[in-house]
């Protein structure tokens, strides 16, 4: 079946199977920044923005995206660049498998709550697991990014 959706601001018509998950459809269509880390939406690596809200695409049926807007990190390159610079400053990047999904979640947080407290940041990002960094350097980098002037607004 066909679905109509916007991916990173561009209208697309995609052929999907009824039982297919959005993650697999995106990867099949070369949105390779969206990755699979687990089988049951518990790691956060497959996060995309669904109408600007972060959701795990591994457990979202692709048909549900019909007439909705999907954002992957390819759609927020400038923000990802800024976040990467902050990560670099605090030594917060290691393997980076989760980094594009992290960028999307942090970007969504920035839209929702620019003045998030430490606890609010942690709670918002709790579903984005990281096995490399121990989180502390990431937290500092994310705070720095959130504190930067939001040029797009």
């Amino acid at each position: 079946m066909k679905i109509n959706l916007k991916i990173n601001g561009i209208s697309k018509i995609l052929e999907v199977e009824p039982g297919e998950f959005l993650l697999d459809v995106l990867r099949r269509n070369n949105y390779l920044s969206v990755r699979r880390g687990c089988d049951n939406s518990s790691c956060g690596v497959c996060t995309v923005l669904f109408d600007n809200k972060p959701v795990p695409s591994c457990s979202l049926l692709a048909v549900k995206a019909n007439n909705h807007e999907i954002t992957t990190v390819e759609g927020i390159q400038e923000e990802a660049n800024k976040l990467a610079k902050c990560f670099g400053e605090y030594g917060a990047d290691q393997c980076g498998f989760c980094n594009p999904s992290m960028a999307l979640t942090v970007y969504a947080l920035k839209q929702e709550n620019k003045n998030a407290t430490d606890e609010e940041i942690k709670e918002y990002l709790v579903g984005n697991l990281c096995r490399c960094t121990g989180y502390v350097s990431q937290h500092k980098a994310i705070k720095k990014y959130l504190g930067e002037k939001n040029e797009s607004s």
């Binding site: 390779l32 920044s33 969206v34 990755r35 992957t72 990190v73 390819e74 390159q77 990802a80 660049n81 976040l83 990467a84 610079k85 990560f87 670099g88 400053e89 030594g91 990047d93 980076g96 498998f97 980094n99 594009p100 992290m102 960028a103």
Partner: peptide
Amino acid sequence: GSVDGVGIMKGRKAF
């Protein structure tokens, strides 16, 4: 900073 941090964050083909 890491030599590859920006490209990885931006979701370049890598893995």
